[in-house]
Simulated assay, not measured.
Amino acid sequence: MPVVAWVTLVAATLVIALTAVALLRVIVHLKHVTGTLDTLIGGVESIADRTGTVPARLISVNATLKPVRDWTETV
């Protein structure tokens, strides 16, 4: 084989190897980001559970406070 062919093969091998290493680094970073996002999603779900809407059982409290609301509307 001529020298030019060997140089081309070595250059192609280097380019492919560097690209493979770069892609492996991207994969590692994406796995780290996935773990961070899973933790973040868990935190957001926890906050959503703790700050949900008022349950329907508080309707009786609202009914009890209706006279107070009516009085404040007259003020």
Rank of each mutant, 00 (worst) to 15 (best):
G52S: 11
V4S: 08
G52K: 11
I27A: 08
T74F: 07
L18E: 11
V26H: 06
T19C: 09
I27P: 00
A56G: 01
T64R: 06
V33S: 02
I27G: 01
H32Y: 10
V4C: 04
L24K: 04
L18K: 04
S60E: 14
T64P: 00
T19Y: 12
L30T: 02
M1H: 05
H32D: 14
R25P: 02
I41G: 00
V68F: 12
L23E: 09
T51Q: 10
L37I: 09
A63R: 05
G52H: 11
S46R: 09
N62T: 02
I16V: 06
T74N: 07
T13S: 01
I59F: 04
K31Q: 14
W6K: 01
S60A: 07
T19A: 12
V4P: 00
A17H: 02
W71G: 00
W6V: 00
G35S: 09
G43Q: 15
A22N: 08
A56V: 07
T74Q: 12
T53M: 10
D49L: 10
L30Q: 10
R50S: 07
T8F: 12
K31R: 12
T39G: 06
V68D: 08
D70K: 03
V33K: 04
A48D: 14
T64I: 03
A17M: 09
A5G: 00
L18A: 06
D38E: 13
M1D: 09
R57E: 15
T51G: 02
L37D: 04
E73T: 00
A63V: 02
V7M: 12
H32S: 08
L9K: 05
V33F: 03
L30S: 02
V68E: 10
V68M: 10
A22Y: 15
T53Y: 10
P67R: 02
R50W: 13
R50L: 12
P55S: 07
L18C: 06
L40E: 15
M1T: 00
V26G: 00
L40T: 04
P67V: 01
V21A: 04
V15D: 01
A12C: 06
P55M: 07
